[in-house]
Structures are given as C-alpha cells and as structure tokens.
Nucleic acid binder design. Structure first.
Lengths: 337, 337
DNA sequence: TGAATATATGTAATCGATTACATTTAAGGA
DNA sequence: TCCTTAAATGTAATCGATTACATATATTCA
C-alpha cells in the first residue's frame, strides 16, 4: 500500500507538503498542489488513519451504546446520529450491550483506549454515581434515557408529561378504569412514565387502583401476560396504556384471545410509535418520540463536547406527539391542554 | 491520561517489560509481572489502541455494510457478526448505505485507510467487476447477497430452491393460480427468487402467466400496490408469494381492503421471517433464513481471510426453513421432497 | 537593484505503543 | 568456582502520519 513518502517522491516534494495538501491548510503553490494531487491519484493513495489519529490524538469515531440492536426503536436513533456524524467525518461504532450492565462501562472505556472520542448512551442501567464520574472524565451524551437531577448533556422527551397526556386523552374519551403496563423499574423512562400515569389518574379525580398497575419487560410476551392479568381482575379496565408499543401489541393479542375486541371493549395506547404499530390491527394509538431528531441532537451535542470539554451541560427536551390511530376508537384530532 | 511509560516508571521497569506483560508473550518473572499489574491498576491505565494498531498495522475492526439499518432483517445478521467479532476482540463498524450505491465503495475504502481490517457486505449493488477487483485487494465477505459465478467468500441460503419450495407448498395446498410480488431486479436475491418461482411454476405443470408476476421494492407500500394490481386482474390468483415479509404484509392489507379474507380467499407467503410476520393477522407463513448464523459464519470467514489472505474462497450455503403459520390456512407440517 | 517581507517548501520531532536486538542476571553442569 | 547457557530485562528502531521550526524562494517597495 502506498505511503505518504511514496507520494512525496513521485511528486518531487517533501512529506510535509503532501500533508499540507491533504489537510488543506498551510500555504501550497497551486502548481505544487496539482503535482501532489496527480501523484495521489496515480498511486491510488489514501492516508493511514491510524497514523493520522495517533499524531492528532483523536480517533474521529464515536460509540453509540444501545441495549438491543435488533429493536427498531433504537436503530432510528442511530440513523439520526449517523447522519450528523458522517456530515462531520466521524465514524459510528455500535455498542450492543444486550442489556448487560457491565458492557455499558466497557464501551465507555473505549474512549480511554482512544478507539473513540466520545460516547452516546441510549441505555443507562449502571448506578448514577458511576456515570457522574465517567461523564466528568469523557465526553458522554445521554439520549432517551438519562440521569435524574444531574447537569449532564441529555436529549429526551418529557416522559412524565407524555404519559400524563395519554391518561388525559383516555379520560377525555370517557374512560375511568385505566390499566397500566409499565416497563422495568430500573430504567428511568419506566419510572417517569409510571409517575406520569399516576399523576394523570390523580389529576382527573379517578380513584387510585393499585391492581391496575402492572410491570412488564418491554417485550411482546410480557404485554400478553400483563394484559391477561388485568383482564382477570373482578372489575377489569376499559382501557390499557402500555409503556411501549411491543407490550401494547401483546395486550391487543391477549384481548383478542379473550374473545374481546379492541377498541370496542377495551382501548389500547402504546408508546414509541414503531413501524409495527401501523401494521397491527387495529393500528395503535401511541406516543411518538422524534427519534431521528433525538439522535441528531445528541450527536451535535457530543461534537460540541468533544471540541470543547468545558461546554455547559444542558438537558434538551424535545416535543412528543400523540399519534391517534384506531386502537381507541373515535379517531379524532385532540390536543392536551 | 497515563501512558505506558508512566506505568513503567511506577513499576521500576522498562516499557518493553510492560508491553510484554500486556501482550502476554515473552518471558517475564512472575514477581515483575505483579509489580507491573499493580502499577497498571494504580494508574488506571489502558493502552492506546491507535498506537498499538499503528505499530501492528491492523485496526481490530471490521465494517459491516448494510443497505438500511432500520430494517430488522439486517440487524439480526449484525448481531451474529458482533457475537463472533467480540469473541475475538474485534470491533464492528456499521456502514449504512441507505441504498446509495456509491457509499458501498466508500465503506470498502475504509480498509485502505486502515480504519478496518476487513468488510462484510450485506448489500451488493455495484457492478460485479468492481467487486471482483476489490475482493482481490481487501478481505471481503458477502452475506445474504452475493456475486454469481465468482470464487469469493460468501454466506447465503439457496434463494432459488427456497422460492421453488414455496411454490411446491402452495401447489400442494391445491393452488394453481399463484401471483408473485418480486423485489427490485438489480439485487441478486430478487432475481434468484423470481427464477425459483418460475421454475416451481413450470415444474408443477402450471401454465405460465406473465401477468401474475409483479415487481415491488421490498417496502410495505409496494406490497399493497402490487397486490392490488393482482386483484384487479380478470382472473386473480388464489395465492400470492411475496419476495419479502414487508411486501407480504402489504399484500395482506390490500386484500383486506378489498373485502377479501386471508387465507380463505387468498393465501399469502412471505420471505425472511421478520418479527412483524408473527404480529400481522393472520400470522405469516414465510421462509426463514438463519440470519444470526449467517452473520456468525460470515464473520468467521472474514477472520480467517484477514489472517490468511491466501485462503481458498468458498461459498457457504446454509439451510432455509419454511415456517408455516396461518396465512395459507391448513396449518400443517410439510416437507419439500 | 537590494533589503525587507511574504510565501513556499523542507527537516526532523512527535504521537504511544510493539518488538528486534543487545545486554544483564540467574541457573546449571563439570 | 568458573564457564556455558537460559531467562529476564532494557535500548532503540519502527509504524505513517502531522506540524513546529528552519530554510529557501518569490514578491514588494524604496
């Protein structure tokens, strides 16, 4: 493989000049520049990034840590990240933790190894203190999941408000008996959505019924199980709100299995607006997060942070949207006050 | 950030010794090794990969080029790749082409830049000659898609046979009027599956009806459109085989929109067995590719190729499976002879 | 035209590891 | 004990770029 010195020789100049042409800075006579470019083309030369990056002490790479690569919810975020990254000549390494808490840290350590210049975390399962320390040391941005009450760069929606909005919507449709299928409580968005749900219930003067609150693991199967549990209650709910679309889809399946109909007998609302929610029948009413935009914003923040570690850490809250389809009946425009 | 020389000083040895401890080769007295390990721990030292890789002229990274990261079909393959990669201390860079032909080549060039040691291509849209030349130069493995009649490392299923198998299955259920929704003809698997479909039709002595053959773009919407076209034929088919699950799902939607029922009026078969095919109603009968295994095998091949560029190029063909669900009625076990 | 200044190019140090080779220290054998 | 050989450790070159600094060449203006 051709090296810079080969190019220099062929063009009859020094490596410094070749480098200047490549970097596009420093003065080079147009005529010389052409000679160099010609030599580069002739040798089909590409600079060795390892060498460049070692010298410049950067890797032009970022790591995106997600819990599950095969989950379409996360890939859309990655897409947004990649868009901005590529615009700035950065590469994106995908870190798939498979929900393994230890691997979260391993991926962050890649910054220490100079494999990456920064990290975007789309999963936050380790204890808060750990992240606070790590975020001090490395450029880290949190996307979707985050750390409560910390001055760190984070990009999320308002999970509390959005869950509350769903309750308002259901109450508005006349529901008073609303079941809830939450996510695992160790992840913050689950806690937020549960909190939003409870606030919504209370603010609408609905008697609080603990049996209506169940906890799944974000998988379809757990949606089926929890919905079944709710259906077997002496006074089952007339509407079920699931903390993500997969569980909502599971709930729909369970309800149909019980010979009931959605939305006639029971209304369903999901969360995330994944593609599948348009395919299921009835199409799912759900909260939509601006996933691509979250990814973009997170990457922009990370780039700023990499180039200016002293940057003020800010929590960016992007708008959510209630996408109304058929799973609650009465398709209609609606706006939360 | 601590460097190797800091560790060496603290441990009272030379950098060579530290490196030997780290690399685990060369003789080091147990006592010295402990001193070094102690110093490493104390300084929280991690070797700089850029430096290591530059010296060793490798990057311990591979690029996986896929056409669309948000397509769950591909992520499962990536999962298999990552599994093997991580076992061998390799990192995986995801190259998302967004179906842009030019970017395919750009990602391969990353090997020239030493950003990666090899490439796994899960999309092959450029002309054959181009790849033949590139595959000579760099370690490249093809997964799912491939190059016809070339001695290159490839991991796929038999797309012709599997499509033929679907036709046999449908004929076995009594269908004689079978419609086909193919993928874009520039991708090889589309051509293979179409060929398999036609072979199946001919071998079953079914009169060949060109109007039954349509072409979509692998998206749900195109499935809707093509199925609609088939339904408007004077003598519409009683079964439709789509070259992927998304289009099959689109077809189901279209059929329902026409007030017809699946599978009572029309049977549907898809291809790929994505998660969504279990969610749609009726659940989709489809060909399942061992995606994870394809990824694993491809990565294994690539590792071999990286460490031994003279390796014989072989085409590995993995078994497919017809997954029978409800979209053709008569749920039953069935085996192609 | 010649000195002063600006522009263009070259030389060599540097990034942080690995490793061939040199050197020191320890072990084994007579 | 001394010599030979093996084991342990150190020194310095190396990977391929970037860039500070030095030097050569061109330009400007009195």
């Amino acid at each position: 493989m051709a090296k810079m010195i080969d190019v220099a020789k062929l063009a009859g100049v020094s490596v410094a000049t070749v480098s200047r042409v490549l970097m596009g800075k420093g003065k080079v006579r147009e005529q010389t520049r052409q000679k160099v470019l010609e030599a580069i083309k002739q040798l089909n030369y590409k600079p060795n990034r390892l060498a460049r990056n070692l010298r410049r002490l950067e890797s032009q790479t970022v790591v995106v840590v997600i819990p599950d690569i095969s989950n379409p919810f996360f890939t859309e975020i990655v897409l947004g990240i990649q868009e901005i990254a590529n615009q700035h000549g950065y590469h994106v390494l995908l870190g798939n933790t498979n929900n393994d808490v230890k691997r979260e840290i391993q991926f962050i350590e890649m910054v220490k190894e100079k494999v990456a210049d920064g990290v975007i975390l789309v999963t936050v399962r380790n204890p808060k203190e750990r992240f606070l320390k790590l975020a001090q040391e490395f450029p880290i941005v949190f996307a979707c999941e985050y750390i409560k009450g910390a001055e760190l760069p984070m990009v999320t929606i308002d999970n509390v408000r959005s869950a509350q909005c769903v309750v308002n919507y259901l109450v508005n449709l006349g529901h008073r008996k609303i079941g809830y299928i939450g996510g695992p409580q160790q992840v913050i968005v689950s806690r937020d959505r549960l909190q939003g749900f409870i606030q919504g219930v209370i603010q609408n003067d609905i008697p609080f019924e603990p049996a209506y609150i169940t906890e799944g693991d974000f998988g379809i199967q757990s949606g089926i199980e929890m919905a079944t549990k709710l259906l077997q209650l002496p006074s089952p709910p007339t509407a079920i709100f699931a903390a993500n679309d997969e569980m909502a889809i599971g709930a729909i399946k369970a309800i149909k299995n019980h010979g009931l109909s959605v939305p006639k007998d029971i209304a369903i609302v999901g969360f995330d607006n994944i593609t599948m929610s348009t395919v299921v029948e009835p199409a799912l009413t759900t909260i939509s997060q601006p996933r691509r935009q979250i990814g973009q914003k997170a990457m922009e923040l990370l780039l700023q942070l990499i180039h200016n570690p002293m940057l003020k850490r800010e929590h960016i809250v992007l708008p959510y949207e209630l996408v109304i389809r058929q799973s609650c009946g009465n398709p209609s425009v609606w706006s939360d006050s």
